[in-house]
Structures are given as C-alpha cells and as structure tokens.
Simulated scan of single mutants.
Amino acid sequence: MSDSRTVLVTGATGFIGRALVPVLIEQGHEVRAMTRRPESYDGPGTAVGADVHDPDTLGPALAGADVAIYLVHSLDDVDFERKDADAARAFGKAAAEAGVQQIVYMGGLGADDDDLSAHLRSRREVEGLLGEAGVPVTVLRAAIVVGAGGISWELTRQLVKNLPAMVVPKWVGTRTQPIALHDVVRYLAGVIGKEEALGRVFEIGGPEQMTYLEMLQVAAEISSGRRVPIVQVPVLTPKLSSYWLALVTDVDVTTGRNLIDSMSTEVIVTDHSIREVVPGEPMSYAESVRIALEDAADA
C-alpha cells in the first residue's frame, strides 16, 4: 500500500468519527465519510450514503476503498447483539467483495477468559465476524474514551456536575484504564496500512489504571474544584442503576443498562505492543478531562 489511501469511515458523524476524519485528511488520505444521511453531513471528506443494517447500500460505499474503519454499534437497542452481529457479517462480506485491504475496528478491553458482559461479548463477536470473509482486521480494544460527546465520559461529567453527593453501587471499585480521545484517534490513524498491524488485536489505554470512583473524584476536582461525597452501597442492580443514570443524566435507560453491565468487569491493558507500531506516550487522565471540558465549553 502507498502512504496515501482511500479510507471509508463508518460512523463518521459519531463521537470518534468526527475527531478522526479531519486527522486522516491532514495525513493525506482521501476520506469517505459514511453516514445514513449524507445530505445533512457538514464535516470534511466526501459524504457517502450507506447503512450497515442495509447490506445493499454497502457495496457502492466501499467500492475502491483501500481501508475501512468500523466505528458503529447499537448500544441503544435492546437487541443490539443480534443487530451488531448481522451488520458486522454483512460489512465484512461487502468489504471483501470490494477488494478492501484492511478493516480497522474499535473493540472493548477485557480478558477473553472473563465472564464478559453482553456489551463486551458482542464486541468480541464483531471482531471475528468482520474478518469472516477474508479481509485482514486490525482491532484496537479500549476501555472508557474520554472526550466531549462520548457516552461513558458524558456519564462521568454529568454525574459530578448534577449531583452534590452520590450513592453508588459497588462496581465503582472496578479498575479500568481510561484513554483520551486524542490518543484513540492517533492509534486509529497510526495503524492504517501498516503491514505489522494486519490481523492483530491491540490493547490501548492511558497511563493510569483507575477505579470508576477515582475517575469521578478527579473529574469533580478538575471541573468544580471540589470533591463529591460518595457513599457506596453493596446492592444496586444494573436495572436500578440504569434508571438512576437516566434520572440524573441525559443517557437513555437502554444504553445506560448496557454500559453498566460492563462496569463490573476489570478492563485494563496487559499488552503494550501497540507502542511498537504507533510510538508515543498517551495523555494522562487529568489532562484528557481538562481537554474534554474545554471542548464541551467551546461547542
């Protein structure tokens, strides 16, 4: 592959896609921004209309693309596992038929032998289905991505903003490894066309392993200069937690429930081989929080 490629970005209007597309253009790639509503797309790149849940639309969008970046999921749907599996299978098949040389996918961290939540289990399934038709897949597995507009980050931001104190379930003691949106984009852009990245799974994360409780406290101190009193309770079911989140944030119950199901699983980086392919030190959690707050204020 040459350095400049034709790259199709699915989910181009989403949280990660919006940040990724301009970076790819700056690097000299020809970018197709795939969206279900191309007529209303106002970002950089060339808008192409297609829907991963409508296989007939995928062929024209993928025709002539060298690389496809897959950033879509259906967390806001109660039947998201089936929908995401069907979409991944259809997309992988269409990519193979179009001669795509690499699919890059954003997956979720978590050890393969863990009792994974439905959300993380679905991400694993999608990894395999995307490559089922033969296109080499590069997977980047991440935990919480910190950036303005990201669902997991918005939960954190809105909780510390809206509540003077919190009663929280025991899953806030689970360790995770948050990563800045800036670093996610850097890794996604960095693996494009790299022979050593084809067919591989990489774990990506920031420099710190933190509990959700620590993340909430750091975010509170940076955003308001205060610590939020937090009381942990031993029993607060995912269903009750999701209603609680829907009450105090603008995240809907279904999405909240699917995310909370994953929060009892420890998700930390155990393999740092991504550094060999895309060198550079990731941003600290505190710095990523400051940038996310600044970006939200400027929006």
Rank of each mutant, 00 (worst) to 15 (best):
M1W: 02
D3Q: 14
S4K: 15
T13V: 12
T13Q: 04
G14W: 09
G17Q: 05
G17A: 10
L20W: 10
V21H: 10
L24D: 08
E26S: 15
Q27C: 05
Q27W: 02
R32G: 02
R32W: 14
A33K: 04
T35F: 06
P38G: 02
G43Q: 06
T46R: 15
V48S: 06
A50L: 04
P55M: 09
P60K: 02
Y70I: 12
S74H: 11
V78Q: 12
D79T: 14
E81H: 13
D86N: 14
A94W: 10
G99D: 09
G107Y: 02
L109N: 10
D114K: 12
S122R: 12
E127T: 11
E132S: 14
V139M: 01
V139F: 01
I144N: 11
I151G: 07
S152V: 06
L159F: 06
L159W: 03
P164M: 01
Q177M: 10
I179D: 01
I192H: 07
E196P: 02
E196C: 03
V218E: 14
A220M: 07
R227L: 02
I230R: 09
S241P: 07
A246W: 10
A246Q: 13
D250W: 00
V253D: 03
I260H: 04
M263W: 14
G280D: 12
V289F: 02
V289P: 01
A296C: 01
